[in-house]
Amino acid sequence: MQVTFYIAAGVAILSTIMVITRFNIIHALLYLVVSFMALAVVFYIMGAPFAAALEVIVYAGAIVVLIIFVIMMLNLKSEAVAQEKKWLTPEVYVGPAILCIILLAELIYTIGVGNTVGITGQIVDVKEVGQSLYGEYILGVELSGMLLMSGIVGAYHLGRQKKKVVHRFLEKPEE
């Protein structure tokens, strides 16, 4: 179990590094799918099979597909890759990376000093999750529903390709 976890964790970290360093966005998204898959394995090891399934379906499936759709709508060409190369220079990423590594070091230290408890990997199955979700967390479910609704409305409203509105008096009369 431990070995499986460390392999999956290694895959997840590596593929995530690949995601943030790719110039071509489609390549990046493919690595992202790998990363999500690896995490799904981790979830499974942790005894959360339902979460693992959702990870694959929603993250690796729906969200990534959504992003790919948008990329297709934007119709990006090969110049985009050249553009990315120009943007991602060492002077751009060294500073933020150092800062984040400091933060990570602090985080690791903080997590490390805590007493460690073993994880048995006991399975918490769908039934329990469902009862909890529709029992004590029912309010949260309702709120999530509202959030999704507003997300749909917002996305529709923002995504519309509006006609550029010029003042009607400035419009040229149609001939």
């Binding site: 976890f5 970290i13 942790m46 985080l107 805590g114 073993g118």
Partner: peptide, 22 residues
Amino acid sequence: MSELQATSGLLLAGTLFMLGLI
């Protein structure tokens, strides 16, 4: 075979979070 530690999982989460931040 020793047990899997909760710390390892959290460290993975922290690392991934930082990579996302970067």
